[in-house]
Design a binder for these strands. Structure first.
Length: 562
RNA sequence: UGGCCUAUGGUGUAAUCGGUAACACAGCAGAUUUUGGUUCUGUCGUUCAAGGUUCGAGUCCUUGUGGGCCAACCA
């Protein structure tokens, strides 16, 4: 009772954007309407940073009964492709959101052209014949004012004629641009007559060859927001200087006043989120594609076995603010474990097999033992596991000469085989080089799991699979992609910072037979080893599993300390 | 002698008229456990600096300092 009261009264603190929205609603701004948008450029796959932005924009719309559009910011045909368009929608949906509208900035090319004409007509824009270098030279520096272009004083008529000529393909690429007529001495560099339109004879993924002039970001983004009557246009901090231009264009055109708000983009430890760098990793073969499970892309995390709800929880916990940050990806691992602990089926798999023979168990016999599917979920039920004389156990679970704190199997010691019997290690069999090839044990028939009358108290419980029933599998173990925490801050080339052990492939793991038909999208805990999911490379008869994340490992910590 | 943003434990965020600096992760210690998992308990540790206003400052004022972004026909 009291805890219920606590839960309902303890309300989550608002982030600064929610405060702005609630103030706007209280003031009746936009008739209390909230409309956001998620505006990716389709020039790469979405990554973990986009995921937090998706949760922000779609989450805000959901929280305030508003709408959220997906809008592809496709104003640069040179870098944009439909492959990316498709993957973006798939990722948004996988995260649990259906856009209220799916738009493209390219839908507005006609309207945007009209806007540009309006600007020219009121003397707010002009065609400049300068080269890119000439424009840059007259731009000035942050501490020095720029100089006006020699083409700045052209008549409205001439500007109109030339801009139309640009549109009609009469001029070569790079020969002319349309510029806003603002203030070459503005302390804000963005306001020094920014380029609005450029000529590009490039094939656009949607409009084909219809256009040879394309609007710049500033000429497209705010106008698209306005056309869609977006109320809160949320972007990252590096666009803050653009806000002045965003507002100026809305003012000049007299269109719906969308408002821009900026938050700090997220940086993550041991990875990169720059699209340029991610593209390089893919193109130069440092990873096996955009969805290589080591990548920070949404498609990679899906393939690796992360859940949408873990990502959502992670996003909620890191919050939103305006300061520089480096988010510990360990928190994401925590969220993944927290979610998977509740929903994943417990199964047994041996990754580095050591043969174990139970010398007092009859040869050729097998019995099927009950085991629970998930102790965290009483609804999950039980299943049967085959047990027999020859088993596989984990190599790490036996030490011939163990340190004090090791309480798994060692000569003479007892161990519990999970859901089966207690055994005692008797004898080690070695090959000519002294490697342990087999462990011979005896078992206690009266110690059967669930009906144990042996009175024995082994300190460790081991996972195992019956050798005669096990199915072979490949298992891929992933570790952090980079060796340094803050990759972007490191002076070395980021490709020299890659972790050489980010992928370890185990070719000959043994799985319990129930895993034979597991499909991608199913989540498992390999008991004592971690969370795993079938990889999309799996073939019938040749399952491949990805390790999503390890379990917390207290023993590893102890062993490391010595 | 530019403009804008920003500064709270190791990390990420709270503290909504100026009123006991808190939550989570990580760390450490312990209990429980047929997963060295989970769960539970305890614990460590924080306001960039210096002045000022005030009974009282993370919050207000002044002056500094640190970090980030801006000079693509990228977004």
């Amino acid at each position: 009772m009291t805890s219920d009261i606590k839960e309902t009264t303890a309300k989550e603190p608002l982030n600064f954007i929610e405060e702005i929205i609630e103030n706007d609603i209280a003031e009746g701004k936009n008739d209390g309407r909230v409309h956001t948008r998620f505006p990716p450029e389709p020039n790469g796959y979405l990554h973990i940073g986009h995921a937090t932005t998706i949760f922000l924009n779609f989450g805000l719309a959901r929280k305030y009964n508003g709408l959220c559009n997906l809008r592809y910011d496709d104003t640069n045909p040179v870098t944009e492709e439909t492959e990316y368009v498709d993957s973006i929608l798939e990722d948004v949906r996988w995260l649990g959101f259906e856009p209220d509208n799916i738009f493209y900035a390219s839908d507005y090319f006609g309207q945007l052209y009209e806007f540009a004409v309006q600007l020219i007509q009121k003397g707010a824009a002009y065609v400049d014949d300068s080269t890119a270098e000439e424009i840059a030279a007259l731009k000035g520096t942050p501490t020095e004012a720029g100089q006006p272009s020699p083409y700045r004083q052209r008549s409205v008529e001439e500007n109109l004629r030339l801009f139309e000529g640009m549109k009609n393909g009469e001029f070569p690429e790079g020969s002319r641009v349309l510029r806003a007529n603002i203030d070459m001495a503005s302390p804000n560099m963005i306001m020094r007559d920014p380029v609005l339109y450029r000529i590009k004879f490039a094939h656009h993924h949607r409009t084909g060859d219809e256009w040879c002039i394309y609007p710049m970001y500033d000429m497209a983004h705010g106008q698209s927001d306005s056309i869609e009557r977006i109320t809160h246009s949320i972007c990252t901090l590096e666009f803050a200087p653009h806000r002045e231009l965003y507002d100026w264009l809305i003012e000049q055109l007299g269109i719906f006043p969308s408002r821009q708000y900026e938050f700090a983009r997220r940086n993550f430890s041991y990875t990169v989120v720059s699209k340029r760098k991610l593209l390089k990793l893919v193109q130069e073969g440092f990873v096996n594609g955009w969805d290589d499970p080591r990548m920070p892309t949404i498609s990679a995390m899906r393939r690796r076995g992360f859940t949408p709800s873990a990502l959502r929880e992670f996003s909620r916990r890191i919050g939103i603010a305006k300061r520089e940050n480096l988010v510990d990806l360990g928190l994401l691992e925590f969220c993944v474990r927290e979610d998977l602990n509740k929903l994943s089926k417990r199964v047994m798999a041996v990754l580095n097999p050591l043969k174990l023979v139970i010398t007092n168990y009859p040869e050729g016999e097998a019995e099927w033992l009950e085991t629970e599917n998930n102790p965290e979920d009483p609804e999950s039920g039980i299943r049967l596991l085959p047990f027999s004389r020859e088993l596989w156990i984990e190599q790490d679970d036996f030490m011939e000469d163990p340190p004090k704190k090791f309480f798994r199997l060692s000569p003479g010691q007892l161990g519990r085989l999970k859901s089966a019997y207690i055994i005692q290690a008797d004898e080690v069999v070695k090959d000519g080089e002294g490697n342990i090839t087999e462990l011979r044990c005896t078992y206690f028939p009266e110690s059967k799991s669930g009906q144990d009358t042996s009175g024995l108290k082994p300190k460790a419980t081991l996972h195992w699979v019956s050798a005669a029933h096990a199915i072979p599998a490949e298992v891929r173990l992933y570790d952090r992609l980079f060796m340094v925490e803050d990759v972007d801050d490191d002076p070395r080339d980021f490709k020299d910072l890659l972790n050489p052990d980010s992928l370890v492939v185990i070719e000959n793991a043994w799985l319990e037979p129930s895993l034979a038909d597991a499909l991608p999208g199913e989540y498992f805990q390999f008991i004592r080893m971690g969370y795993f999911t079938p990889d999309t490379d799996s073939k019938p008869g040749k399952p491949i599993f990805n390790r999503t994340v390890t379990l917390k490992d207290a023993w590893a910590k102890i062993a490391q300390k010595g």
